[in-house]
Simulated scan of single mutants.
Amino acid sequence: MNDADLILFIAATFLLAGFVKGVIGLGLPTIAVGILGVVMAPAQAAALLVVPNLITNGWQIAAGPRLKAMLIRLWPMLAGICAGTWAGAGLLEQQKNGSATLWLGIALVLYALVGLKAAKLRVPTGAEIWLAPLIGIATGIATAATGVFVLPAVPYLQALGLDKDELVQALGISFIVSTLALSIGLVGAGALDMQVAWNSLLALAPALAGMAAGTAVRSRISAAAFKLCFFAGLLALGGYLVLRAAS
């Protein structure tokens, strides 16, 4: 693939990933790392995602309804994400056979199927205080191994009973902290330097364009339709990860 084709491939990938993120609040790293893995190593793809992740999640956070209250509620999980990501630093560079991505995809498919069957997961009253840090640590380790931020943070946040706008904001907060924590690990592993950061900045425009289109779609759908899109999107993302890792 020549340079011009590679640029078009990357732009199309971020346009698609941004659109999915705009609709359901997640999917940018999952789609981008999965598709870009065709032409580059997972650690390189994760490094390319840094700027688009930071800006799109910043937008997602700013558009939400209750930022201060959400930060106060989520900080134990966020601290756990940082600890888990840094504890697993280097796992992404070491991944050769795709086994971590395969298991992540399988777990995502199972969770999506449970959600589509209308099973209601709920965090019990009083459990949040001890469960949140554990969820954060597990999410951080999964992030360090795969470059994808979805499990188990997404099911946990969905089980808190947030409305669609609160959920999208909470996802944005979780993802931006994961991005910052992973970036520190990538710098330490030598996968993120100024050249890669510049390339990551160039990927921002198509990601924002896709997210703007997806956000417009989300603003026009009902809570029930959003839930269906959310779990169907998770099912598609999980299925893609399984196929990608197994191929």
Rank of each mutant, 00 (worst) to 15 (best):
N2Q: 10
N2H: 14
L6C: 06
L8M: 13
A11W: 08
A17C: 14
A17L: 11
G18K: 04
L26W: 07
L28Q: 02
P29M: 08
P29F: 06
A32F: 06
A32E: 06
I35F: 13
L36C: 11
G37P: 08
Q44N: 14
A45N: 02
A45I: 02
A46H: 01
A47G: 12
V50D: 00
V50G: 01
P52E: 07
I61T: 10
A62C: 09
A62Q: 06
A63E: 14
R66C: 12
L67M: 13
L71I: 14
L74D: 04
M77G: 05
C82S: 14
C82N: 04
C82Q: 03
G88L: 02
G88N: 08
G90W: 02
L92T: 02
L92N: 04
Q94W: 01
Q95W: 04
Q95Y: 01
T101L: 15
W103H: 03
W103D: 02
G105M: 04
G105K: 03
A107C: 15
A107P: 00
L110P: 07
Y111T: 06
L113G: 07
G115E: 06
L116G: 08
L116K: 02
A118H: 14
K120M: 13
T125Q: 15
A127N: 02
I129M: 05
W130S: 12
P133E: 11
L134T: 12
T139N: 07
G140P: 06
I141N: 03
T143W: 05
A144H: 00
T146D: 07
P152S: 07
A153L: 05
L157S: 01
A159V: 11
L160F: 08
D163Y: 10
D165Y: 10
L167F: 15
L167P: 03
A170K: 00
L171V: 09
I173Y: 03
S174F: 04
L182H: 03
S183Q: 01
S183N: 12
I184G: 08
I184D: 01
G188N: 03
A189Y: 07
L192Y: 03
M194F: 12
W198A: 15
W198V: 15
N199W: 04
S200I: 04
S200R: 05
L202A: 12
L202Q: 11
L204D: 02
P206Y: 00
P206L: 03
A207K: 07
L208N: 05
L208W: 13
A209L: 15
G210K: 00
M211K: 09
A212Y: 08
T215L: 10
A216E: 12
V217C: 13
I221C: 01
A223F: 05
F226P: 00
C229M: 14
C229P: 00
F230C: 07
F231W: 13
F231D: 03
F231H: 15
G233D: 02
L241T: 00
R244K: 15
R244G: 01
S247V: 14
